[in-house]
Design a protein around this nucleic acid. Structure first.
Length: 646
DNA sequence: TCTTGCGCACGAC
DNA sequence: GTCGTGCGCAAGA
């Protein structure tokens, strides 16, 4: 491949263009870092070579360097739909190369280089030149001048009577920029600060042999201005000392009335400065990554990115290696700092921060919390795709029928626990556990009419009103009227049950009704054994019972014992963990194990909070809520639904 | 740990 | 409104 002018072939042109295309497909920013990374992985091309070729491609206009949302991107000119727009109005694609921070940085740099500017202001020409030097993008003098005018208009910059520019001092100015500037000078850092003198984040600079730092806006080589020494090795701690805040620089320069003074002071305070600057070093990578980074070396973060000045690759790195030991020591500290910050973003490009740049601050979206029932959705696979992947997936996988059956979506059990079939009938959930059943499986046709809207309790959850034992202790007979269940031996008088009986009324109901009517159809002679309407299809343990009024506050009000301690609810305070387990095992055989695992005894049980049950026991929400109900029941020894949701 | 896919926010038009 | 872009996240290797 030839340059347009017929120059020598650009060695990695195809790979670079491919990288750009690939990154665009991935919706990843085609920045220098990623391009280098791509070539490194695919072709083992050193980042330096990649950058060098990238710049050649830019010069050849085969790759267009643009600033988009505050950061540098590269476009494949042959495939870029906006190429014509760019050609017509290139500044429209580089306008973000100028921002307040960059201006501030340029001013600060010039002030540090020439302390007199502090009082006199920075000559417009010098400032424009500085800003233009900060970018090789087609930024024109006019564009820069216009931008400066806007900055003045917006109050970010002051134009003095002599026509020179000065930064507007702000209260938050600190000394650190001067420090970094001085540090740079003293340590021979070449850093283009056309942006603010902001954080230069180091990705393991122990390995950054011959990297130099340039403005993030461009990977193209650029002059570093007067303030930048020529020999430019970089060492870690110097980067650590480069801290955001050009304005700070000036103010502190003012305070000290001399940049020279502040310079020495800052050097003395190096350690302190380092500590502060650590907060601005979000992407320092651990040494383990260094091997790849060594070759990659193009990293960015925050408004100022590290970029490779490919012209400087050839520079001597002797100075840097001399200071490496110190740097490595400091890197450990930074790593520790990093541990506390977002490290999940592997992107080398500035991620979320927008300090001082024009880049819009993308808000980090909260992770969506899906409805538990969404677990039944087949999600589109993400990440690397292996084999064919139906991109239009996102299909509701399971019984679409249930989409019109709201109650059936309430929990993990979508099959009727009684008939184990799927019907066009909504499921009723046991109010205490996860068991579900069709109303028609639970009730007889006659019962369906007036009990359909009642809460229902499966046999496991049903307990004897008198002894509180479940059907494990013997068959329960449920009152047709109040739905209280009794063991035949617990009820007074003792119940004589026959399977053929369908309607049994407890003694209480019988007496109540006998007071109000003649109880012609109300007799405790009829009983309803704890068997479902369709016993032939029942799972062995499930025997649904209707609890029409239980759980309603109305009944609570009628029910004397529930205003205080319900004697039917056992005192769990002295239970062993095994007893606790046994209690819950009867109700929630699947989930009860957690009580045993966590060794929850009666005392602990009584101290448990809602959050303990819902969060700390690793239970699904549905069972957890039901378990909590029982926990609360044991704690207060009342069965008051009103308390469950407190 | 790294790469990849992609939802969705954002800005330009 | 559409379109281009790419951040931020999650999934997969």
């Amino acid at each position: 491949m030839q340059h347009r002018g017929g120059e020598s072939k650009i060695k990695h042109e195809e790979q670079i263009l491919e990288a750009i295309d690939q990154l665009r497909r991935r919706k990843a920013r085609p920045d220098a870092d990623r391009i280098c990374n791509y070539l490194l992985r695919k072709c083992s091309v050193d980042a330096r070579d990649t950058i060098a070729d990238l710049h050649r491609l830019i010069e050849a206009e085969k790759v267009i360097q643009v600033d988009y949302k505050g950061n540098t991107s590269y476009r494949n000119a042959s495939k870029w739909s906006r190429l014509q727009l760019y050609k017509n109005k290139p500044e429209g694609f580089v306008k973000e190369k100028l921002n307040s921070s960059m201006v501030a940085g340029a001013v600060a740099e010039l002030v540090v280089a020439e302390p007199d500017y502090l009082d006199q202001g920075v000559p417009a020409d010098r400032l424009i030149e500085q800003l233009m030097n900060g970018s090789t993008s087609p930024t024109t003098r006019r564009v820069v001048d216009d931008f400066l005018s806007k900055e003045v208009a917006s109050g970010n910059l002051t134009r003095l009577n002599n026509g020179n520019y000065s930064l507007v001092a702000t209260p938050d100015m600190t000394q650190e920029s001067v420090h970094q500037e001085n540090s740079r000078q003293e340590n021979g850092i070449k850093k283009n600060t056309s942006q603010n003198l902001a954080v230069v984040n180091a990705y393991d600079f122990t390995e950054c042999d011959d990297m130099t730092v340039t403005d993030s806006r461009s990977n193209t080589p650029k002059s570093s201005g007067e303030a930048s020494p020529k020999q430019d090795s970089l060492k870690k701690d110097e980067y650590c000392e480069i801290v955001t805040g050009t304005k700070q620089t000036l103010q502190n320069s003012h305070k000290d009335n001399s940049s020279t003074k502040s310079r020495s002071r800052f050097i003395d305070n190096k350690e302190e400065s380092l500590n502060r600057s650590n907060n601005h070093q979000p992407n320092l990578k651990k040494a383990s990554k260094s091997e790849r980074k060594q070759r990659l070396q193009v990293r960015s973060e925050e408004p100022v990115e590290i970029e490779i000045n490919y012209e400087d690759y050839r520079t001597d790195r002797k100075e840097e290696t001399e200071q490496r030991d110190e740097s490595e020591q400091l890197s450990e500290e930074r790593d520790e700092e990093d541990a506390g910050r977002s490290s999940t973003n592997p992107s080398p490009t500035p991620s979320s921060t927008n300090t001082g740049g024009f880049r819009s601050a993308r808000r980090k979206r909260a992770k969506k919390v899906f409805d538990p029932s969404d677990n039944n959705l087949v999600r589109r696979k993400r990440g690397r795709q292996s084999g064919s992947q139906n991109k239009t997936a996102m299909i509701v996988s399971q019984d679409s029928q249930e989409a019109v059956k709201p109650s059936a979506k309430e929990g993990p059990h979508r099959h009727c626990s009684l008939c184990a079939k799927q019907k066009q009938e909504r499921l009723v959930a046991c109010r205490d556990c996860t068991v579900r059943a069709h109303p028609s499986c639970i009730y007889s046709p006659e019962e369906l009419i007036h009990k359909l809207d009642s809460s229902w309790q499966c046999e496991r959850c049903k307990s004897c009103t008198v002894c509180c034992e479940t059907s494990d202790a013997g068959p329960l007979i449920t009152c047709y009227s109040c739905d209280e269940a009794y063991h035949s031996s617990c009820h007074t008088p003792r119940i004589s049950v026959t399977k053929s009986t369908t309607k049994w009324h407890c003694n209480n109901c019988t007496q109540k009704h006998s007071k109000t009517n003649n109880t012609h159809s109300f007799s405790s002679n009829t009983s309803r054994p704890v068997t479902p309407s369709h016993p032939s299809v029942l799972p062995p343990v499930l025997s649904p019972q209707v609890s029409p009024a239980r759980g309603s506050s109305d009944q609570m009000d009628d029910d004397g014992p529930r205003d205080g301690i319900d004697p039917n609810i056992p005192d769990a305070s002295d239970w062993t963990s095994e007893q606790v387990y046994q209690y819950f095992a009867r109700l929630f055989p699947k989930e009860a194990e957690v009580f045993r695992q966590q060794d929850i005894d009666g005392h602990s049980l009584l101290l448990m909070k809602r959050s303990d049950v819902l969060s700390s026991m690793d239970l699904l929400l549905g069972p957890a809520l039901k378990i909590y109900r029982h926990v609360l029941k044991l704690q207060i020894r009342r069965d008051d639904p009103r308390l469950y949701w407190l």
